[in-house]
């Protein structure tokens, strides 16, 4: 059985190799800080395998995570000299290789699709080929490895250090933003354990008048939206807002159609995900990947759409769910 952990180890290992390259890169004035940061991330990725199965204590990893935050937060990380090709070389190479360049790039989505549709259902000797519940991660991981093999054959590139160097350059360009989604996931858990959700739910119930259907619909949707802004994730907002307003008031008191109320409530939360920096994997990481100067660029592009769609969700719920 192909397991998700294998790909976490592969990512961890490549971070460790890249960290070694970073430390030896004299073109980077902060080479030690940068190397330490990514080395810790890489080691953390591998160590985590034992933390999720409770075979190793989580505290040392937590301390390492805080060291990562300090290294990044106080500007101890930087960028090295990219070892890459000039724009002229790239244009010449593109003209030479033509559309064949797309073959490895499209291998990733093609393999991911094959895993999601076909391989998922395969099993050998009663054991599924892919670890269940991790098919999307596995699709991406297998796709990336297959694409790398195809690319190296196609480009007649024999040194594995070349893609690793290219990957390192992208990693340095993205910097700490890469780690923000995981940090936020942690914050979400801490919020939950400390009862932040319950408090926000209480606030929502306090401002809710019991007699107006339309106001209640608006409070539920706006609550999902606002809560998602804070938590960065509609999944964290949903149980709280549904327990406070959605179920007791909209479904219990006003007899709304449960499927409609809950589906639209979740979608109102998604409008919040579009405009919050807390949803870093959707909003901040792409800005870093695209090397934007304004890290809020994608959020600004999404803001009007999110506002209009929030209105749409409220309207659809108010008109058709009761």
């Amino acid at each position: 059985m192909i397991k998700a952990e294998w790909f976490y180890w592969l990512v961890g290992l490549s971070f460790l190799v890249m960290a070694a390259q970073m430390v030896t890169d004299r073109g980077n004035p902060k080479r030690f800080g940068t190397g330490a940061f990514w080395g810790l991330v890489g080691a953390g990725f591998i160590y985590s395998s034992w933390v999720v199965t409770k075979r190793a204590p989580a505290e040392p990893l937590g301390a390492a995570v805080l060291v990562m935050a300090v290294l990044a937060g106080f500007g101890c990380t930087g960028r090295g000299t990219p070892r890459t090709t000039t724009p002229q070389e790239r244009t010449a190479s593109a003209a030479r290789l033509g559309n064949r360049l797309f073959i490895p790039a499209l291998t990733i989505p093609a393999v991911a699709m094959a895993c999601a549709l076909g391989v998922k259902h395969l099993s050998i000797g009663g054991e599924p080929v892919l670890q269940q519940g991790s098919e999307t991660i596995l699709g991406l991981g297998i796709g990336a490895v297959a694409a790398l093999a195809v690319a190296m054959l196609l480009l007649r590139e024999k040194r594995l250090s070349v893609p690793v160097q290219s990957g390192r350059t992208m990693l340095e360009a993205m910097g700490w933003a890469m780690l923000l989604p995981q940090m936020l996931a942690t914050l979400g858990t801490i919020f939950q354990v400390s009862g932040v959700g319950g408090q926000v739910g209480k606030l929502a119930t306090a401002v809710l008048p019991k007699d107006s259907l339309y106001v209640a619909v608006a409070v539920y949707c706006l609550g999902m939206f606002a809560f998602t802004l804070v938590m960065g994730n509609a999944f964290a907002a949903f149980p709280v807002m549904t327990a406070a307003v959605g179920w007791p008031v909209l479904i219990g008191h006003f007899h709304g159609n449960p499927a409609a109320v809950l589906a639209l409530g979740m979608l109102a939360g998604f409008c919040g995900t579009l405009v919050t920096p807390m949803a870093a994997n959707f909003n901040i990481v792409p800005a870093a990947l695209l090397e934007l100067k304004d890290q809020y660029g994608p959020i600004k592009a999404q803001l009007p759409t999110a506002g209009i769609l929030l209105g749409c969700n409220i309207l659809i719920m108010a008109l058709f769910a009761f």
Binding site: F7, V11, A58, L61, G62, G143, L148, G167, L171, Q182
Partner: peptide, 23 residues
């Protein structure tokens, strides 16, 4: 909590596996 959070959310960073081939 920080350790468990990091370990449990590695799937959001798994896209890093595509960086070498894209680069």
């Amino acid at each position: 909590a920080f350790g468990d959070g990091f370990a449990g959310s590695r799937s959001v960073t798994i896209f890093a596996i595509t960086l070498p081939v894209i680069g």
